[in-house]
Design a protein around this nucleic acid. Structure first.
Lengths: 228, 228
DNA sequence: GCCGGTTTGTTCTCGCGTTCACAAACTTCT
DNA sequence: AGAAGTTTGTGAACGCGAGAACAAACCGGC
Protein backbone atom coordinates (compact mmCIF):
# COMPACT_ATOMS: atom_id res chain seq x y z
CA UNK A 1 0.00 0.00 0.00
CA UNK A 2 2.52 2.58 1.11
CA UNK A 3 5.33 0.57 -0.49
CA UNK A 4 7.38 2.06 -3.31
CA UNK A 5 10.19 0.77 -5.39
CA UNK A 6 13.37 0.66 -3.29
CA UNK A 7 15.36 2.52 -5.94
CA UNK A 8 12.93 5.42 -5.94
CA UNK A 9 12.28 7.57 -2.89
CA UNK A 10 11.01 4.99 -0.43
CA UNK A 11 11.21 7.43 2.47
CA UNK A 12 8.07 9.26 3.37
CA UNK A 13 8.58 12.57 5.00
CA UNK A 14 6.44 13.48 8.05
CA UNK A 15 3.76 16.03 7.32
CA UNK A 16 5.09 18.46 9.93
CA UNK A 17 8.46 18.37 8.20
CA UNK A 18 6.97 18.93 4.76
CA UNK A 19 5.27 22.05 6.06
CA UNK A 20 8.60 23.45 7.20
CA UNK A 21 10.67 22.64 4.12
CA UNK A 22 9.44 25.71 2.22
CA UNK A 23 10.51 27.86 5.16
CA UNK A 24 14.00 26.39 5.05
CA UNK A 25 14.04 26.91 1.31
CA UNK A 26 13.26 30.58 1.72
CA UNK A 27 15.87 30.99 4.44
CA UNK A 28 18.48 29.32 2.24
CA UNK A 29 17.62 31.52 -0.71
CA UNK A 30 17.99 34.51 1.54
CA UNK A 31 21.37 33.30 2.77
CA UNK A 32 22.54 32.61 -0.78
CA UNK A 33 21.57 36.13 -1.85
CA UNK A 34 23.59 37.46 1.06
CA UNK A 35 26.59 35.61 -0.32
CA UNK A 36 26.80 32.91 2.34
CA UNK A 37 28.31 29.69 1.00
CA UNK A 38 28.04 27.52 4.09
CA UNK A 39 25.92 27.54 7.20
CA UNK A 40 25.48 25.51 10.36
CA UNK A 41 22.18 24.04 11.48
CA UNK A 42 22.15 26.65 14.21
CA UNK A 43 22.37 29.57 11.78
CA UNK A 44 19.80 28.15 9.41
CA UNK A 45 17.47 27.31 12.26
CA UNK A 46 17.64 30.88 13.53
CA UNK A 47 16.94 32.23 10.05
CA UNK A 48 13.95 29.92 9.74
CA UNK A 49 12.69 30.58 13.25
CA UNK A 50 12.88 27.02 14.53
CA UNK A 51 14.88 24.87 16.93
CA UNK A 52 18.19 23.58 15.54
CA UNK A 53 17.51 20.02 16.66
CA UNK A 54 14.21 20.10 14.82
CA UNK A 55 15.89 21.44 11.73
CA UNK A 56 18.51 18.68 11.71
CA UNK A 57 15.89 16.01 12.21
CA UNK A 58 13.83 17.46 9.38
CA UNK A 59 16.79 17.51 7.02
CA UNK A 60 17.80 14.00 8.00
CA UNK A 61 14.59 12.77 6.40
CA UNK A 62 15.83 13.92 3.01
CA UNK A 63 19.25 12.35 3.34
CA UNK A 64 22.68 13.28 4.65
CA UNK A 65 23.37 16.52 2.89
CA UNK A 66 25.50 18.10 5.61
CA UNK A 67 29.12 17.65 6.63
CA UNK A 68 29.91 17.05 10.27
CA UNK A 69 32.17 19.65 11.74
CA UNK A 70 31.37 22.01 8.88
CA UNK A 71 27.67 22.46 8.23
CA UNK A 72 25.63 22.65 5.06
CA UNK A 73 26.54 23.96 1.62
CA UNK A 74 23.87 26.58 1.10
CA UNK A 75 23.44 26.21 -2.65
CA UNK A 76 23.56 22.42 -2.60
CA UNK A 77 21.05 22.09 0.23
CA UNK A 78 18.79 24.67 -1.37
CA UNK A 79 18.66 22.62 -4.55
CA UNK A 80 18.04 19.37 -2.70
CA UNK A 81 15.09 20.82 -0.80
CA UNK A 82 13.68 22.43 -3.92
CA UNK A 83 13.91 19.11 -5.73
CA UNK A 84 12.30 17.25 -2.87
CA UNK A 85 9.38 19.67 -2.71
CA UNK A 86 9.10 19.65 -6.46
CA UNK A 87 9.63 23.33 -7.18
CA UNK A 88 12.47 22.70 -9.59
CA UNK A 89 9.82 21.92 -12.14
CA UNK A 90 7.09 24.23 -13.37
CA UNK A 91 3.59 23.91 -11.97
CA UNK A 92 0.74 25.32 -14.02
CA UNK A 93 -2.03 26.73 -11.81
CA UNK A 94 -5.55 27.99 -12.42
CA UNK A 95 -7.28 30.52 -10.22
CA UNK A 96 -11.07 30.52 -10.06
CA UNK A 97 -12.87 33.55 -8.66
CA UNK A 98 -11.34 36.86 -9.64
CA UNK A 99 -12.68 39.14 -6.93
CA UNK A 100 -10.50 41.18 -4.62
CA UNK A 101 -8.58 38.19 -3.39
CA UNK A 102 -8.31 36.62 -6.83
CA UNK A 103 -6.77 39.83 -8.10
CA UNK A 104 -4.25 39.83 -5.31
CA UNK A 105 -3.34 36.21 -5.92
CA UNK A 106 -2.96 36.71 -9.66
CA UNK A 107 -0.57 39.58 -9.02
CA UNK A 108 1.35 37.82 -6.27
CA UNK A 109 4.94 37.56 -7.41
CA UNK A 110 5.78 34.86 -4.88
CA UNK A 111 4.01 32.29 -7.02
CA UNK A 112 5.94 32.90 -10.19
CA UNK A 113 9.27 33.04 -8.41
CA UNK A 114 8.71 29.64 -6.84
CA UNK A 115 7.84 27.59 -9.87
CA UNK A 116 4.12 28.25 -10.06
CA UNK A 117 2.75 29.68 -13.29
CA UNK A 118 -0.76 31.05 -13.45
CA UNK A 119 -2.02 29.77 -16.79
CA UNK A 120 -5.62 30.91 -16.45
CA UNK A 121 -7.98 33.11 -14.47
CA UNK A 122 -11.58 32.01 -14.45
CA UNK A 123 -14.77 33.67 -13.28
CA UNK A 124 -18.44 32.85 -13.73
CA UNK A 125 -19.40 36.52 -13.98
CA UNK A 126 -19.40 37.53 -17.69
CA UNK A 127 -18.80 41.18 -16.80
CA UNK A 128 -15.30 40.28 -15.70
CA UNK A 129 -14.35 38.54 -18.92
CA UNK A 130 -13.30 41.81 -20.47
CA UNK A 131 -10.60 42.29 -17.86
CA UNK A 132 -6.98 41.32 -17.96
CA UNK A 133 -5.20 40.74 -14.67
CA UNK A 134 -1.43 40.48 -14.42
CA UNK A 135 -1.24 39.98 -18.15
CA UNK A 136 -3.65 37.06 -18.17
CA UNK A 137 -7.15 37.16 -19.62
CA UNK A 138 -10.10 36.40 -17.39
CA UNK A 139 -12.04 33.62 -19.06
CA UNK A 140 -15.41 31.95 -18.49
CA UNK A 141 -15.56 29.31 -15.82
CA UNK A 142 -16.87 26.84 -18.37
CA UNK A 143 -13.45 26.78 -20.03
CA UNK A 144 -11.97 25.02 -17.01
CA UNK A 145 -11.86 21.48 -18.37
CA UNK A 146 -10.32 22.56 -21.67
CA UNK A 147 -7.64 24.63 -19.97
CA UNK A 148 -6.76 21.89 -17.50
CA UNK A 149 -6.40 19.39 -20.32
CA UNK A 150 -4.40 21.74 -22.51
CA UNK A 151 -1.83 22.80 -19.92
CA UNK A 152 -1.80 19.69 -17.74
CA UNK A 153 -2.90 21.66 -14.72
CA UNK A 154 -2.73 19.70 -11.47
CA UNK A 155 -3.25 22.51 -8.94
CA UNK A 156 -6.29 24.75 -8.63
CA UNK A 157 -6.92 27.78 -6.44
CA UNK A 158 -10.42 28.71 -5.28
CA UNK A 159 -11.02 32.33 -4.33
CA UNK A 160 -14.75 32.52 -4.87
CA UNK A 161 -17.46 33.32 -2.32
CA UNK A 162 -18.27 30.43 0.00
CA UNK A 163 -21.49 29.43 -1.68
CA UNK A 164 -19.76 28.73 -4.99
CA UNK A 165 -16.76 26.86 -3.61
CA UNK A 166 -18.16 23.33 -3.62
CA UNK A 167 -19.35 23.57 -7.22
CA UNK A 168 -15.98 24.87 -8.30
CA UNK A 169 -14.23 22.08 -6.43
CA UNK A 170 -16.44 19.47 -8.08
CA UNK A 171 -15.70 20.90 -11.51
CA UNK A 172 -11.98 20.96 -10.76
CA UNK A 173 -11.99 17.35 -9.67
CA UNK A 174 -13.84 16.13 -12.71
CA UNK A 175 -11.49 18.16 -14.90
CA UNK A 176 -8.61 16.17 -13.41
CA UNK A 177 -7.21 18.52 -10.78
CA UNK A 178 -5.90 16.67 -7.76
CA UNK A 179 -4.67 19.46 -5.48
CA UNK A 180 -6.79 22.40 -4.37
CA UNK A 181 -5.91 25.49 -2.39
CA UNK A 182 -9.14 26.85 -0.97
CA UNK A 183 -9.54 30.44 0.23
CA UNK A 184 -13.32 30.30 0.45
CA UNK A 185 -14.67 29.96 4.01
CA UNK A 186 -16.37 26.64 3.33
CA UNK A 187 -15.73 22.97 4.03
CA UNK A 188 -15.06 21.19 0.76
CA UNK A 189 -15.83 17.55 0.22
CA UNK A 190 -13.69 15.83 -2.38
CA UNK A 191 -13.02 12.20 -3.33
CA UNK A 192 -10.06 10.30 -1.90
CA UNK A 193 -6.83 11.07 -3.61
CA UNK A 194 -7.54 14.77 -3.95
CA UNK A 195 -5.67 17.07 -1.55
CA UNK A 196 -7.28 20.19 -0.19
CA UNK A 197 -5.53 22.83 1.85
CA UNK A 198 -7.55 25.70 3.21
CA UNK A 199 -6.54 29.21 4.08
CA UNK A 200 -9.15 31.01 6.10
CA UNK A 201 -8.41 34.60 6.94
CA UNK A 202 -11.14 35.11 9.49
CA UNK A 203 -10.26 31.91 11.33
CA UNK A 204 -6.73 33.15 11.85
CA UNK A 205 -8.03 36.39 13.29
CA UNK A 206 -10.42 34.54 15.56
CA UNK A 207 -7.61 32.43 16.94
CA UNK A 208 -5.69 35.59 17.71
CA UNK A 209 -8.77 37.09 19.33
CA UNK A 210 -9.13 34.09 21.61
CA UNK A 211 -5.60 34.43 22.92
CA UNK A 212 -5.91 38.19 23.10
CA UNK A 213 -9.01 37.86 25.22
CA UNK A 214 -7.19 35.65 27.68
CA UNK A 215 -4.18 37.91 27.99
CA UNK A 216 -6.26 40.25 30.11
CA UNK A 217 -8.08 43.52 29.39
CA UNK A 218 -5.08 45.74 28.73
CA UNK A 219 -1.65 44.89 30.07
CA UNK A 220 -0.06 48.22 30.94
CA UNK A 221 3.35 47.05 29.90
CA UNK A 222 2.44 43.73 28.39
CA UNK A 223 3.06 41.13 31.06
CA UNK A 224 0.28 39.23 32.78
CA UNK A 225 -0.49 40.86 36.08
CA UNK A 226 -1.32 38.92 39.24
CA UNK A 227 -5.03 39.32 40.08
CA UNK A 228 -5.07 40.75 43.62
CA UNK B 1 2.67 30.85 36.23
CA UNK B 2 -0.19 29.31 34.32
CA UNK B 3 -2.46 29.69 37.36
CA UNK B 4 -5.54 31.86 37.16
CA UNK B 5 -8.19 32.83 39.64
CA UNK B 6 -10.44 29.83 40.19
CA UNK B 7 -13.57 31.89 39.63
CA UNK B 8 -12.40 32.98 36.22
CA UNK B 9 -11.86 30.57 33.35
CA UNK B 10 -9.27 28.25 34.85
CA UNK B 11 -9.61 25.79 32.00
CA UNK B 12 -7.16 26.18 29.22
CA UNK B 13 -8.30 24.92 25.91
CA UNK B 14 -5.82 22.90 23.79
CA UNK B 15 -4.42 24.82 20.87
CA UNK B 16 -5.70 22.29 18.34
CA UNK B 17 -9.20 22.75 19.71
CA UNK B 18 -8.98 26.54 19.59
CA UNK B 19 -8.08 26.32 15.91
CA UNK B 20 -11.25 24.34 15.22
CA UNK B 21 -13.71 26.42 17.23
CA UNK B 22 -14.10 29.01 14.46
CA UNK B 23 -14.95 26.20 12.06
CA UNK B 24 -17.66 24.96 14.38
CA UNK B 25 -18.90 28.50 14.77
CA UNK B 26 -19.25 28.89 11.04
CA UNK B 27 -21.01 25.55 10.70
CA UNK B 28 -23.45 26.49 13.45
CA UNK B 29 -24.19 29.85 11.86
CA UNK B 30 -24.86 28.03 8.63
CA UNK B 31 -27.20 25.60 10.36
CA UNK B 32 -29.00 28.43 12.14
CA UNK B 33 -29.56 30.24 8.85
CA UNK B 34 -31.01 27.04 7.44
CA UNK B 35 -33.52 27.08 10.28
CA UNK B 36 -32.10 24.16 12.23
CA UNK B 37 -32.81 24.47 15.95
CA UNK B 38 -31.01 21.37 17.20
CA UNK B 39 -28.24 19.17 15.90
CA UNK B 40 -26.33 16.07 16.96
CA UNK B 41 -22.55 15.92 17.21
CA UNK B 42 -22.61 13.74 14.12
CA UNK B 43 -24.42 16.35 12.01
CA UNK B 44 -22.29 19.21 13.24
CA UNK B 45 -19.12 17.20 12.74
CA UNK B 46 -20.09 16.47 9.16
CA UNK B 47 -20.84 20.13 8.52
CA UNK B 48 -17.48 21.08 9.98
CA UNK B 49 -15.58 18.32 8.22
CA UNK B 50 -14.25 16.56 11.32
CA UNK B 51 -14.71 13.36 13.29
CA UNK B 52 -17.67 13.40 15.68
CA UNK B 53 -15.61 12.11 18.60
CA UNK B 54 -13.15 14.93 18.11
CA UNK B 55 -15.96 17.43 17.99
CA UNK B 56 -17.43 16.18 21.25
CA UNK B 57 -14.10 16.25 23.00
CA UNK B 58 -13.45 19.74 21.70
CA UNK B 59 -16.79 20.98 22.97
CA UNK B 60 -16.32 19.25 26.30
CA UNK B 61 -13.45 21.64 26.99
CA UNK B 62 -15.89 24.55 27.01
CA UNK B 63 -18.40 22.87 29.28
CA UNK B 64 -21.44 20.63 29.02
CA UNK B 65 -23.61 22.48 26.58
CA UNK B 66 -25.30 19.45 25.02
CA UNK B 67 -28.15 17.23 26.12
CA UNK B 68 -27.68 13.47 26.00
CA UNK B 69 -30.14 11.71 23.81
CA UNK B 70 -30.96 15.01 22.06
CA UNK B 71 -27.92 16.92 20.87
CA UNK B 72 -26.99 20.58 20.91
CA UNK B 73 -29.18 23.66 20.73
CA UNK B 74 -27.74 25.40 17.69
CA UNK B 75 -28.26 28.99 18.80
CA UNK B 76 -27.14 28.37 22.38
CA UNK B 77 -23.98 26.53 21.37
CA UNK B 78 -23.22 29.13 18.74
CA UNK B 79 -23.31 31.85 21.37
CA UNK B 80 -21.18 29.88 23.81
CA UNK B 81 -18.46 29.28 21.25
CA UNK B 82 -18.57 32.89 20.09
CA UNK B 83 -18.19 34.05 23.68
CA UNK B 84 -15.34 31.65 24.33
CA UNK B 85 -13.44 32.82 21.25
CA UNK B 86 -14.20 36.41 22.06
CA UNK B 87 -16.07 37.41 18.93
CA UNK B 88 -19.10 38.65 20.83
CA UNK B 89 -17.12 41.80 21.42
CA UNK B 90 -15.73 44.16 18.84
CA UNK B 91 -12.07 43.95 17.87
CA UNK B 92 -10.49 46.99 16.26
CA UNK B 93 -7.84 46.03 13.71
CA UNK B 94 -5.23 47.92 11.73
CA UNK B 95 -3.88 46.76 8.37
CA UNK B 96 -0.40 47.85 7.34
CA UNK B 97 0.61 47.56 3.71
CA UNK B 98 -2.12 48.43 1.23
CA UNK B 99 -0.91 46.63 -1.88
CA UNK B 100 -2.92 44.04 -3.75
CA UNK B 101 -3.36 41.85 -0.71
CA UNK B 102 -4.03 44.75 1.63
CA UNK B 103 -6.80 45.90 -0.68
CA UNK B 104 -8.35 42.46 -0.64
CA UNK B 105 -8.17 42.24 3.13
CA UNK B 106 -9.68 45.68 3.61
CA UNK B 107 -12.60 44.71 1.43
CA UNK B 108 -13.03 41.27 2.94
CA UNK B 109 -16.51 41.13 4.42
CA UNK B 110 -15.72 38.14 6.58
CA UNK B 111 -13.86 40.35 9.02
CA UNK B 112 -16.67 42.77 9.69
CA UNK B 113 -19.25 40.04 10.04
CA UNK B 114 -17.22 38.29 12.71
CA UNK B 115 -16.56 41.11 15.10
CA UNK B 116 -13.45 42.58 13.52
CA UNK B 117 -13.53 46.25 12.57
CA UNK B 118 -10.84 47.73 10.37
CA UNK B 119 -10.17 51.09 12.01
CA UNK B 120 -7.19 52.11 9.90
CA UNK B 121 -5.24 51.31 6.76
CA UNK B 122 -1.59 52.33 6.82
CA UNK B 123 1.06 52.50 4.16
CA UNK B 124 4.52 53.99 4.04
CA UNK B 125 4.15 55.05 0.41
CA UNK B 126 2.81 58.66 0.32
CA UNK B 127 1.34 58.13 -3.14
CA UNK B 128 -1.26 55.83 -1.63
CA UNK B 129 -2.41 58.31 1.01
CA UNK B 130 -4.85 59.87 -1.42
CA UNK B 131 -6.76 56.62 -1.76
CA UNK B 132 -9.75 55.39 0.13
CA UNK B 133 -10.29 51.65 0.40
CA UNK B 134 -13.56 50.16 1.58
CA UNK B 135 -14.56 53.53 2.98
CA UNK B 136 -11.43 53.92 5.08
CA UNK B 137 -8.68 56.44 4.38
CA UNK B 138 -5.16 55.20 3.78
CA UNK B 139 -2.95 57.00 6.26
CA UNK B 140 0.81 57.34 6.78
CA UNK B 141 2.52 54.52 8.61
CA UNK B 142 3.84 57.00 11.16
CA UNK B 143 0.31 57.44 12.50
CA UNK B 144 0.34 53.88 13.85
CA UNK B 145 1.03 54.63 17.50
CA UNK B 146 -1.60 57.35 17.67
CA UNK B 147 -4.25 55.18 16.05
CA UNK B 148 -3.51 52.22 18.28
CA UNK B 149 -3.77 54.39 21.36
CA UNK B 150 -6.94 56.12 20.21
CA UNK B 151 -8.92 52.99 19.30
CA UNK B 152 -7.36 50.53 21.72
CA UNK B 153 -6.18 48.33 18.88
CA UNK B 154 -4.82 44.97 20.00
CA UNK B 155 -4.58 43.17 16.67
CA UNK B 156 -2.48 44.17 13.67
CA UNK B 157 -2.30 42.74 10.17
CA UNK B 158 0.89 42.93 8.11
CA UNK B 159 0.49 42.72 4.33
CA UNK B 160 3.68 44.47 3.28
CA UNK B 161 6.55 43.08 1.22
CA UNK B 162 8.84 40.76 3.17
CA UNK B 163 11.65 43.25 3.63
CA UNK B 164 9.42 45.69 5.50
CA UNK B 165 7.68 43.17 7.74
CA UNK B 166 10.08 43.14 10.67
CA UNK B 167 10.12 46.93 10.96
CA UNK B 168 6.34 47.02 10.90
CA UNK B 169 6.17 44.32 13.55
CA UNK B 170 8.59 46.23 15.77
CA UNK B 171 6.53 49.38 15.42
CA UNK B 172 3.34 47.47 16.18
CA UNK B 173 4.82 45.95 19.31
CA UNK B 174 6.07 49.25 20.65
CA UNK B 175 2.70 50.80 19.90
CA UNK B 176 1.13 48.20 22.18
CA UNK B 177 -0.19 45.63 19.74
CA UNK B 178 0.06 42.11 21.11
CA UNK B 179 -1.37 39.98 18.32
CA UNK B 180 -0.11 40.02 14.76
CA UNK B 181 -1.39 38.31 11.65
CA UNK B 182 1.48 38.21 9.18
CA UNK B 183 1.00 37.71 5.44
CA UNK B 184 4.54 38.71 4.52
CA UNK B 185 6.83 35.79 3.65
CA UNK B 186 9.26 36.52 6.44
CA UNK B 187 10.09 35.15 9.89
CA UNK B 188 9.16 37.74 12.51
CA UNK B 189 10.91 38.01 15.81
CA UNK B 190 8.80 39.51 18.58
CA UNK B 191 9.13 39.66 22.37
CA UNK B 192 7.46 37.09 24.60
CA UNK B 193 3.80 37.76 25.16
CA UNK B 194 3.16 38.81 21.59
CA UNK B 195 1.36 36.29 19.40
CA UNK B 196 2.17 35.96 15.73
CA UNK B 197 0.26 33.86 13.26
CA UNK B 198 1.54 33.63 9.74
CA UNK B 199 -0.28 32.96 6.51
CA UNK B 200 2.03 32.19 3.64
CA UNK B 201 0.41 31.65 0.29
CA UNK B 202 3.40 30.23 -1.52
CA UNK B 203 4.15 27.79 1.29
CA UNK B 204 0.68 26.33 0.96
CA UNK B 205 1.17 25.84 -2.76
CA UNK B 206 4.56 24.25 -2.20
CA UNK B 207 3.07 21.75 0.23
CA UNK B 208 0.49 20.84 -2.40
CA UNK B 209 3.23 20.54 -5.00
CA UNK B 210 5.15 18.11 -2.80
CA UNK B 211 2.20 15.79 -2.47
CA UNK B 212 1.29 16.22 -6.11
CA UNK B 213 4.77 15.20 -7.12
CA UNK B 214 4.52 12.01 -5.13
CA UNK B 215 1.15 11.05 -6.51
CA UNK B 216 2.86 10.07 -9.73
CA UNK B 217 3.30 11.74 -13.10
CA UNK B 218 -0.31 11.66 -14.25
CA UNK B 219 -2.71 9.16 -12.80
CA UNK B 220 -5.00 8.17 -15.65
CA UNK B 221 -7.90 7.77 -13.33
CA UNK B 222 -6.36 9.08 -10.14
CA UNK B 223 -5.11 6.06 -8.22
CA UNK B 224 -1.46 5.25 -7.71
CA UNK B 225 -0.30 2.69 -10.22
CA UNK B 226 2.21 -0.07 -9.51
CA UNK B 227 5.58 0.71 -11.15
CA UNK B 228 6.38 -2.36 -13.26
C1' DG C 1 49.43 10.04 12.09
C1' DC C 2 47.16 11.78 16.02
C1' DC C 3 44.52 14.96 18.92
C1' DG C 4 41.29 18.67 20.09
C1' DG C 5 37.40 21.23 18.51
C1' DT C 6 33.21 21.46 15.93
C1' DT C 7 28.90 20.02 13.90
C1' DT C 8 25.85 16.59 12.09
C1' DG C 9 22.69 12.62 12.43
C1' DT C 10 20.22 9.79 15.61
C1' DT C 11 18.34 7.75 19.80
C1' DC C 12 15.41 8.31 23.60
C1' DT C 13 11.94 10.33 26.32
C1' DC C 14 7.99 13.07 27.05
C1' DG C 15 3.76 15.41 26.02
C1' DC C 16 -0.04 16.45 22.94
C1' DG C 17 -3.67 15.17 19.91
C1' DT C 18 -6.63 11.66 17.78
C1' DT C 19 -9.60 7.88 17.94
C1' DC C 20 -12.16 4.04 19.91
C1' DA C 21 -15.31 2.41 22.99
C1' DC C 22 -18.48 2.73 26.65
C1' DA C 23 -21.01 4.35 30.70
C1' DA C 24 -24.18 8.02 32.00
C1' DA C 25 -28.18 10.57 30.92
C1' DC C 26 -32.09 11.96 28.42
C1' DT C 27 -36.42 11.09 25.43
C1' DT C 28 -40.19 8.52 23.91
C1' DC C 29 -43.31 4.82 23.65
C1' DT C 30 -46.12 1.51 25.87
C1' DA D 1 -43.44 3.65 35.67
C1' DG D 2 -40.39 0.94 32.94
C1' DA D 3 -38.00 -0.40 28.83
C1' DA D 4 -35.92 0.59 24.45
C1' DG D 5 -33.43 3.71 21.74
C1' DT D 6 -30.34 7.89 21.23
C1' DT D 7 -26.70 10.80 22.06
C1' DT D 8 -23.36 13.07 25.00
C1' DG D 9 -19.15 13.23 27.72
C1' DT D 10 -14.98 10.79 29.04
C1' DG D 11 -11.46 7.14 30.07
C1' DA D 12 -7.87 4.64 27.79
C1' DA D 13 -4.84 3.28 24.03
C1' DC D 14 -2.15 4.74 20.36
C1' DG D 15 0.66 7.40 17.19
C1' DC D 16 3.12 11.59 15.96
C1' DG D 17 6.01 15.39 16.84
C1' DA D 18 9.26 18.19 19.88
C1' DG D 19 13.32 18.61 22.28
C1' DA D 20 17.41 17.05 24.86
C1' DA D 21 21.47 14.56 24.78
C1' DC D 22 25.04 11.98 22.74
C1' DA D 23 27.88 9.24 19.54
C1' DA D 24 29.87 9.43 14.92
C1' DA D 25 32.33 11.98 11.58
C1' DC D 26 34.96 15.72 9.73
C1' DC D 27 38.56 19.62 9.81
C1' DG D 28 42.87 21.67 11.09
C1' DG D 29 47.15 21.94 13.55
C1' DC D 30 51.34 19.68 15.09
Amino acid sequence: MTERTPTEAARDIPEATVARLPVYLRALTSLAEAGTATCSSEELATAAGVNSAKLRKDLSHLGSYGTRGVGYDVEYLRYQIAREIGVTQDWPVVIVGIGNLGHALANFSGFRSRGFRVVALLDADPSRHAEQVAGVDVRPFSDLAAIVAEHGVAIGVISTPAHAAQDVADAMVSAGIRSILNFAPAVLSVPQGVDVRKVDLSIELQILAYHEQRKGPAGLDGRLEAPA
